[in-house]
Every structure is written in structure tokens, then in C-alpha cells.
Computed example of a mutant assay.
Amino acid sequence: MRISPSLFKTLINLWPPYLGAGIRVGHIGHDWRRVEVKMKLGLANRNYVGVHFGGSLYSMTDPFFMLMLMKALGRDYIVWDKAGSIDYLKPGKGTVRALFSIDDALIERIRAETAHGDKTLPQLSVEVQNEQGEVVARVHKTLYVRRKQEKKEKQDRPD
């Protein structure tokens, strides 16, 4: 099923884990290459010392690089999250924001590295910033990408 960025934005903003944590997708580019996510500090995502839970900061960034690459590469590719880590740089207060972006060079590199059936493990990162533009956390993601193998009957069928 093909889904538009605006419908996906509506659906993910209603997804209970994001809704409950105060995570909101503010924008998804028409080509899925830019995504903006925000999270307000509230009772559901505030830790004991009054700042954002580290898990909430990671959660607000979790699926987006995978989804963006899936949309950019198309149905001929398998895309999975392989690994992730987060560096906490300062307490997250107020509204925090993450801006995800992928470019043509990344897409071309992935297509070239997987052209003969090999996998590639692109490493991407995104910064979570506070309202003053200061970096609160840096999230690192490693993805697994491979071109799908053609089904045996397609390979054996004459053109």
C-alpha cells in the first residue's frame, strides 16, 4: 500500500506510544527526504530530575531513517534498523526537535553498494536540539540495506 507523507504524518501522530510521550511529527517532505519531529516536555516524558527521559529522546528518533530510506529506495530493497546509540550531551528541557535529512548522494551510494546483491550498512546520525538550538543529544543509527533477490520464476522466465 502506498501512503502519502501527509497521511503517514497523521497516523504516526495518533500512534499511542508517540501520542502518550508527546512526540509529534511536524513535517514530512513530499519525497520523504526530510522529516521534522518535536517533543514537548510533559508529565509523560519527564524524568525524576525534571528533564526529558533519555528513552523518550531516543524514541522520537527511532524509526525515521529506516522509513525514509524505504520510501527513497522503493520496494526493491530491504531496509532494517541494525543498531543504534545515543550520546546525551545536556539535559533536555522544553521542546526538543530533530530534523532528519537524506540526500541523493546517500541514495546513489546505497544503490551502487547493493547493485550486485551485497548488503550495505549505512551509518546516519541526527541531532536533538532544544529551543535555543543547542544539541541535547546525538543519535547514531546503523541500517541494513540490501536489494531484494528476484524470485526464481522471474529469473527463469524468458523475456
Rank of each mutant, 00 (worst) to 15 (best):
R2M: 12
S4C: 04
P5H: 08
L7P: 02
K9G: 11
K9E: 15
T10K: 14
L11P: 10
N13K: 10
L14R: 14
P17E: 04
P17V: 00
Y18C: 06
Y18W: 11
L19S: 04
L19W: 09
G20S: 14
G20Y: 03
A21N: 05
G22Y: 12
I23A: 12
R24W: 12
H27E: 11
G29M: 09
H30E: 15
D31H: 14
D31Y: 00
W32V: 08
R33W: 09
R33Q: 09
V35F: 05
E36A: 14
E36M: 12
V37Y: 12
M39P: 08
M39V: 04
K40E: 03
K40D: 04
G42A: 06
G42L: 09
G42Y: 01
L43M: 14
A44C: 14
A44E: 11
N45A: 09
N45W: 04
V49M: 09
G50H: 02
V51W: 06
V51G: 10
F53A: 01
G55Q: 00
G55T: 10
S56I: 05
L57T: 08
Y58S: 03
S59V: 07
M60N: 08
M60T: 06
M60G: 05
T61L: 04
D62S: 09
P63D: 03
F64N: 02
F65M: 07
M66N: 00
M66W: 00
L67R: 08
M68N: 07
M68T: 06
M68S: 02
L73A: 10
R75P: 13
R75W: 15
Y77L: 07
I78R: 00
I78G: 11
V79W: 08
V79Y: 08
V79Q: 03
W80K: 13
G84M: 00
G84R: 05
I86T: 03
Y88D: 08
Y88C: 06
L89V: 01
K90Y: 12
P91S: 08
K93W: 05
T95D: 07
R97Y: 02
A98T: 06
A98G: 11
L99V: 07
L99S: 13
F100V: 05
D103L: 08
D104V: 08
A105H: 13
A105C: 10
E108D: 15
E108F: 13
R109T: 03
R109L: 07
I110T: 03
I110D: 05
A112K: 14
E113Y: 02
E113K: 15
T114A: 03
G117T: 10
D118I: 13
D118W: 15
T120S: 13
Q123S: 08
L124T: 10
S125P: 11
V128K: 01
Q129E: 15
Q129R: 15
N130F: 11
E134C: 02
V135D: 07
V136T: 02
V139C: 09
K141F: 13
Y144T: 14
Y144A: 12
V145C: 09
K148N: 09
Q149A: 15
E150W: 00
K151T: 05
K151M: 05
E153G: 08
E153N: 14
E153V: 14
K154C: 09
Q155C: 11
R157Q: 12
R157N: 00
R157W: 12
D159P: 14
